[in-house]
Structure formats: C-alpha cells, structure tokens
Computed example of a mutant assay.
Amino acid sequence: MSAGARDGRVRGDRQKAALVELLEPVVGESGHDLEDVAISQAGRRRVVRVIVDADGGVSLDDIAVVSRAVSKALDETDVLGGSPYVLEVTSPGVDRPLTEPRHWRRAAGRLVKVAFTQDEQGPAETVEGRVVAADEAEVRIEVAGSERAFPLSGLGPGRVQVEFRRIEADDEEGETHGH
C-alpha cells in the first residue's frame, strides 16, 4: 500500500469516527440506534450512508425523521469539509451480521445460522435454529425442537436465514373468486 493510500485511509477512519461521535446522539434522540456510517466517493461527490435500526424495525417515516435530524447536524458542522455529499439514511439489510445483543434481540422469531465455540481451543459448532430471546449475556435458540442457551461470548457473527413460505392449498381454497 502506498503512503498516499494509507494517509487517505487514516483520514477516512478519523472522519468516520468524527461522524459517529457527531451522529450517535442525534440518531439516539429519535429513539434509534446508529448501526454504522460509511463514506464512499461517487464522482465529485461523497456518499454518506447512515444505517439506523430500532426495536420493532424502522419505517419510512422513521427514516425521514432521522434523515432531517442528521442533515441538520451535518449542516451545522464542518466534519465533512467543504466538498458536496449525498446523504443516504437506511436500515440494515437482512444480510447484516448479528454481533451485538440488540441485533440478537431484534432477531427474535427469525431463523439464524451461527458458529458457536465453547472455548478458544475447541472446534466451532454450526448452529441453525430460531432465536427465542436474547439479553446482554446469552442468546436462546430453538434448535431441532429444543431450546438451548448460548453465551454471547461464544457466538460468532450470526446470519438471518431467508425463509420462503409455501402458500398452502387451504389458503387458496379459502379465497373468494367472485363466482
């Protein structure tokens, strides 16, 4: 890596840290959690992507409220310098890794896959099941019909599994077709 690239990355890391410091309380005031901030270049402009989440999810109205508050905060500071930027406020996608207790709590009822290691020397066990509940110390997952408690410290990043529900024949027969 060249010295210029390294300097650019350090500057970007500092800028991201400054953005997180600025925006965390702004997003928090709206009842949301700041999950991540990403800055990327798009031609002459930068794209500032602010990812937010909340218990119960994030609606389009929530996104609008957070977007206005973040935009105001950015306008009142020079953390981005003078160059133009585009602001995107979004919620995390289904592919976001579950790493924090709040991520696991918000995944209650969802099918997940995660690596679990009892200790640092032991082999990892791949666990697939439905999240029952989570707190700051453990995640309870229903695996093969029985509930198991896993210490959060032994879990790798979890992934929500996409489920496709088959339309049941009973649902189709129950519909009125105007005959």
Score class of each variant (00 low, 15 high):
M1E: 09
S2L: 14
S2N: 12
A3I: 10
G4T: 11
A5C: 05
D7Y: 06
G8S: 14
R9F: 15
V10N: 03
G12D: 15
R14N: 10
A17G: 05
L19R: 01
L19C: 10
V20Q: 11
E21N: 06
E21Q: 13
E24A: 11
E24M: 10
V26P: 04
V27M: 08
G28H: 11
E29M: 12
G31S: 03
G31Y: 05
L34W: 08
D36M: 02
D36K: 05
D36L: 09
A38L: 15
S40D: 10
Q41C: 08
R46T: 14
R46N: 08
R46G: 02
V47C: 06
V48K: 01
R49A: 11
V50A: 00
V50F: 05
V50L: 11
V52K: 06
A54M: 10
D55H: 05
D55L: 02
G56Y: 08
S59F: 08
S59C: 01
L60I: 14
I63K: 04
V65F: 05
V65K: 12
S67Q: 07
V70Y: 11
V70Q: 08
K72T: 13
K72N: 12
D75A: 00
T77V: 06
V79H: 05
V79E: 09
G82F: 14
S83L: 13
S83E: 15
P84W: 12
L87K: 08
V89G: 00
T90H: 08
T90A: 06
T90K: 02
S91N: 05
S91Y: 06
P92I: 00
G93E: 06
D95H: 02
T99D: 09
H103Q: 05
A108H: 07
G109Q: 10
R110L: 06
V112P: 09
K113A: 15
F116N: 01
T117I: 08
Q118Y: 02
D119F: 02
A124G: 03
E125K: 00
E125P: 04
V127W: 05
R130F: 09
V131C: 01
A134I: 12
D135N: 12
R140D: 14
R140L: 11
E142Q: 07
E142M: 07
E147Q: 13
L152G: 04
L152H: 04
S153C: 01
G154H: 03
L155P: 00
G158S: 03
R159T: 13
V160L: 02
R166S: 11
R166Y: 14
E168K: 13
A169D: 15
A169G: 11
T176G: 14
H177W: 15
G178Y: 10
H179D: 13
